[in-house]
């Protein structure tokens, strides 16, 4: 199981959970299983998120591998100016 930390617009209240657990060996599996097990996340996932894996932020790379002990955060999709 991978521990997924959420933040930003997905952290809605002081008391809302910030860590979720899903089975995932890569980013695609992570996103699919988050949507499956936590359907309340779907609107945010559909709008687009980036995934930070061990400190590197991936915007689109579905097949980036994730280890069970990886540090994983869902973060906004940022680019810059």
């Amino acid at each position: 199981m991978v521990q997924v930390n959420i933040s930003g617009i997905m952290r809605k209240t002081e008391d809302s959970p910030t860590v979720f657990e899903v089975e995932a060996k890569n980013i695609r599996q992570l996103l699919v299983n988050l949507e499956k097990h936590y359907p309340e996340m779907k609107p945010h996932l559909d709008k687009g998120v980036a995934v930070s894996v061990d400190g590197t932020i991936y915007r689109d790379n579905w097949f980036q591998s994730i280890q069970p002990d990886s540090e994983v955060y869902l973060v906004p999709r940022l680019a810059g100016g």
Binding site: S7, I9, R11
Partner: peptide, 21 residues
């Protein structure tokens, strides 16, 4: 406004709230 719970029932100029930390 998104990013708050419950979602407001009336529209406003506040599009979203986000929180980190």
């Amino acid at each position: 406004t998104s990013g708050v719970d419950p979602v407001p029932t009336i529209p406003s100029n506040i599009v979203a709230r986000c929180e980190f930390g």
